[in-house]
C-alpha cells in the first residue's frame, strides 16, 4: 500500500515542520510578554487536545475539564510545597489520581445515558472548585496556596524563566499531539470514529461503545491534569479562580474553534482564543470603563454560536472547506466561460 505509507509520511512531515516552527519561534521572538502568552497557549493546548479527542472522536462533551486541570495543579502544588517531593513525581501522582477520579465517575455515566456526561462533568467541575475554595487547611482557600511552589527542573537545570519553560511546555505539547495522533490512527481511534459514523454498525462489529468512550474520557482528564501541573510550576502560585466553570467553557470554545476532528486544530483554536482574550483585556476597559469580567462570557458565547452555525467543522477545517468550495466553483466558472 504505497499510498498509505505516503499519507503516513505526510503526517510525520507535518509534525516535523511544526516542531521546527515551534522551536525557532522564541529565537526570533525575544519578548517576555509574548513568550509568556505562548507558554500559556502550550499549556492550554494540552488540555484542549485531550478535550478534542473526547468531543471529536467520542462525541462527548465535558464541562468540567477545568476541574481536572485544577486537580493536576493543586496536587502538584500541595505535594511539592508541603513534602518537597520532585515535581515530576507530583505530576505523575496528579495524573494518576485525576485519571482515577475521571474513570470512577465515568463508569456509571457511560453505563446509563451517555448524554449525561456534560451535566455530570459540569457538576464534578463545580464540586472540585468548591473544594479548592473551602478546604482552606489543604488548599489555602480563596486566596490560594501560600507556600511557595518550586520550579520544575531537568537534571539540575532549573526551568525558572519563560525561555526555558517554553521549550519544556511545547515539548510536552508536541508529545500530546503525537500521542493523540497515534490514538486516532489506531484500532482504538477507528473504534471511536466508527461510533461517530454509526453506533449500530460499530456495535454489530464488536465495538464496546461505553468502554471506549470511558477510556478516552479518562485519557482526556489525564491530559488536563498534566497541563495543570505544568501551570502550577510555571506560575508557582495557585488559587481557585483559574479552575472554575468559566475556564471549562473557555476550553470547550477553544476546541470548537479549532475543529473537533483534527489533531492540529486545538493548537490553533487555543492560540486564536488566547490572543483574542488578551486583546480584549486591553481594549474593553478603554471602550467601556465600567465593564466587569462578564463580557468574556458574552464574547465566548457569540463565538460558539457563530462557529456552530457557519463553520461547524471548526475554524481551520471550516475555512479550508470554504476555500475548496470557492476554488471548485471558480473552476466550474472558468470552464463555462
Amino acid at each position: 500500500m504505497q499510498d498509505l505509507t505516503r499519507r503516513k509520511r505526510f503526517r510525520h512531515l507535518f509534525i516535523l515542520l511544526f516542531t521546527i516552527l515551534i522551536f525557532a519561534l522564541p529565537l526570533v521572538l525575544n519578548n517576555n510578554y509574548y513568550l509568556s502568552v505562548l507558554v500559556i497557549i502550550g499549556i492550554h493546548s494540552i488540555v484542549v487536545i485531550g478535550l478534542c479527542l473526547l468531543m471529536g472522536y467520542a462525541g462527548q462533551i465535558s464541562l468540567g475539564h477545568a476541574g481536572f486541570y485544577g486537580l493536576g495543579a493543586y496536587t502538584s502544588g500541595i505535594i511539592t510545597s508541603t513534602y518537597h517531593t520532585s515535581p515530576w513525581v507530583a505530576m505523575l501522582v496528579g495524573a494518576i489520581g485525576t485519571g482515577i477520579v475521571a474513570y470512577t465517575i465515568g463508569i456509571p455515566i457511560f453505563k446509563l445515558k451517555e448524554h449525561y456526561l456534560a451535566l455530570a462533568t459540569l457538576g464534578l467541575g463545580l464540586i472540585i472548585h468548591i473544594i479548592f475554595v473551602e478546604e482552606v487547611a489543604l488548599t489555602g482557600g480563596p486566596s490560594g496556596l501560600t507556600r511557595p511552589i518550586p520550579y520544575l527542573s531537568i537534571g539540575g537545570l532549573e526551568l525558572s524563566n519563560d525561555f526555558k519553560y517554553y521549550y519544556l511546555v511545547w515539548l510536552i505539547t508536541l508529545l500530546a499531539v503525537i500521542i493523540a495522533n497515534n490514538v486516532v490512527h489506531s484500532r482504538v481511534g477507528r473504534a471511536l470514529r466508527s461510533i461517530h459514523g454509526s453506533e449500530f454498525a460499530a456495535r454489530s462489529l464488536g465495538v464496546d461503545i461505553g468502554k471506549f468512550k470511558l477510556r478516552v474520557f479518562t485519557l482526556s482528564a489525564i491530559y488536563a491534569s498534566i497541563a495543570g501541573s505544568l501551570y502550577a510550576h510555571y506560575i508557582t502560585f495557585i488559587s481557585p479562580s483559574p479552575f472554575g466553570l468559566m475556564t471549562s467553557i473557555q476550553f470547550v470554545v477553544m476546541a470548537v474553534v479549532g475543529g473537533l476532528s483534527s489533531i492540529w486544530g486545538p493548537v490553533f483554536g487555543v492560540a486564536g482564543i488566547t490572543v483574542l482574550t488578551e486583546a480584549l483585556k486591553t481594549v474593553v476597559p478603554q471602550l467601556i470603563p465600567e465593564a466587569g469580567g462578564e463580557y468574556e462570557i458574552v464574547v465566548y458565547g457569540t463565538i460558539l454560536v457563530v462557529i456552530m452555525i457557519f463553520l461547524p467543522e471548526g475554524l481551520i477545517s471550516g475555512l479550508a472547506n470554504l476555500y475548496e468550495g470557492w476554488r471548485h466553483r471558480k473552476g466550474q466558472a472558468d470552464e463555462n466561460s
Partner: peptide, 12 residues
C-alpha cells in the same frame, strides 16, 4: 475489531 486487541496503551 474482534480479531485484534490493541488497547489504549498500545495505541499510545
Amino acid at each position: 475489531h474482534t480479531k485484534s486487541k490493541t488497547g489504549l496503551l498500545g495505541a499510545i
